[in-house]
Amino acid sequence: MAVNDDTFSMSTMFDALPYPNGVSGSIPPPGFPPHASSATNLHAAMFSLMTSCEGLSYFKETISTLDKTELQRMASLLTSDSDYFMAIVTNKNGSKRVQKLLGISDDLDALFCAAILRRFLHITSDKYASYVTIRAMIVFEEEKKKAMYEHILHHALDLACDQHGCIALNDIITDADDPYYRNQILDLVAYNALRLSNHASGNFVVQHVLTLFDSRSIRNIAVSLRGHCIDLSFKKYGSYIMEKLLKAEESSMVVVVVELLQCEGDRLMRLGRNEFGSFVVLKALIMTTKMSRMDLFWRLVEKLMPFIHLLRRSHGNNIANILESLKLRC
């Protein structure tokens, strides 16, 4: 069967596949007509190789038989059409196998980089395809990685507010090895910390940045959230962020505790009794002690003590226990 010189070797491809005629009996990937042609068969065969239920070891064994030229043609076929590439990388097996092809050579990476950038947001916010972006950010060389970073910065907030994109963004932040781009992403998260803290997915990015113990980012997030600590403490995810601010470092702890001290007594009492806020108040008592800020600790105790009986009959029982132990010492 004749094929063009710029396509992957049909004989190599068909010999590698576990089907008698080299083509799966399954439905071809989206975008390809049902009538058979050599090009359609080749795409369908490649789709089968990339997404079949055969183990990953089988795929690794298959590509190990290919020379540099054949690998280049394979990558060219995989990335020649954006919809075709998306159909592969959004497949669980397809994603894993594309990841195995990344980092083999600079020429292959150039093709994959271009394909990822064409559909960057869709790929990086997909449950399976996002791992292709994550892997690319580890193995790509500097020039391609820079192009990827530019797209990450442009789409960072969209990724942060996506169920799967926020996971990918967190992984990218963790592995970021370029100081300039890492700081740019961290600053973007910190500047938008309030918006992200109120988002079901975005809050996980703020939490993640706080766990990196980057002092500059911690201070910037604390500044962005100043004046909103009480409101956030009443919310599930917001309370997680407040707890992380309390334990991150003294400066961020002070921001949260000062707001607790400035709010009206009955509001602090309601916060202490709240399902989520009680953990923030309890963490404030613990961290002011651990960080030797006894001035803040005793001011907080003084403000809470009149409500000990109300705290006892609520989610604030552990707060009441601390207050009770202090009464017994006096």
Rank of each mutant, 00 (worst) to 15 (best):
R312W: 06
D158V: 13
H122S: 14
D106F: 00
I308Q: 11
K96N: 12
Y191V: 15
I218A: 14
Y58G: 07
A2N: 14
K236N: 11
A160D: 02
K96D: 09
L121G: 00
N321W: 06
I172H: 10
F297C: 07
A39M: 04
L188G: 07
G94W: 05
D106E: 05
A320N: 03
Q184V: 08
R312V: 07
N318K: 03
L310G: 03
S201Y: 10
L210M: 08
F47T: 04
K145M: 13
V254R: 12
N198G: 15
L78W: 04
K60E: 15
H155S: 05
M1T: 09
G25I: 12
L111W: 02
S130R: 03
G202V: 07
L71G: 03
I63G: 13
T288Y: 05
R226G: 02
S239Q: 02
P30Y: 01
K60T: 11
M74K: 05
F14S: 10
F234T: 07
L212K: 15
V132Y: 01
M50C: 05
T90L: 03
V189W: 00
M86V: 05
L169Q: 06
C263W: 05
G277W: 00
P33S: 14
K92M: 13
N321Q: 14
E275A: 12
N41W: 04
Q207W: 00
G165K: 01
T62K: 09
A136V: 09
H199K: 09
V132E: 02
D81M: 03
L311C: 03
A168V: 08
I173Q: 04
S217D: 08
C166G: 04
H35M: 10
L268I: 11
P34S: 14
S251D: 13
M287S: 02
Y240L: 11
F32L: 15
V206T: 10
S125F: 02
L102H: 03
V301T: 06
I27T: 14
A136D: 06
A168L: 08
I172V: 15
L56W: 05
I218C: 09
M242H: 09
E142W: 06
S52Y: 00
A110Y: 02
H122R: 10
E61L: 07
A147R: 11
L157E: 02
R273S: 15
N318C: 03
E143L: 11
G55S: 15
H164I: 07
I230K: 01
R216H: 11
R273V: 11
N93M: 13
L101S: 12
M1Y: 04
I134D: 03
D106M: 02
L49P: 11
S82F: 06
L304V: 14
S217R: 10
K247G: 09
E54Q: 07
M50W: 00
I221N: 01
L102Q: 04
L282G: 03
I167S: 12
K290F: 04
S130I: 01
S252L: 00
A75Y: 05
A160H: 01
S325F: 10
N21I: 01
S80L: 06
K327E: 15
V256Y: 05
L196A: 00
S125M: 10
F85V: 13
M74W: 08
D266N: 12
I63N: 13
L186I: 03
G31A: 01
K127P: 07
L296G: 06
A222S: 15
A156Q: 04
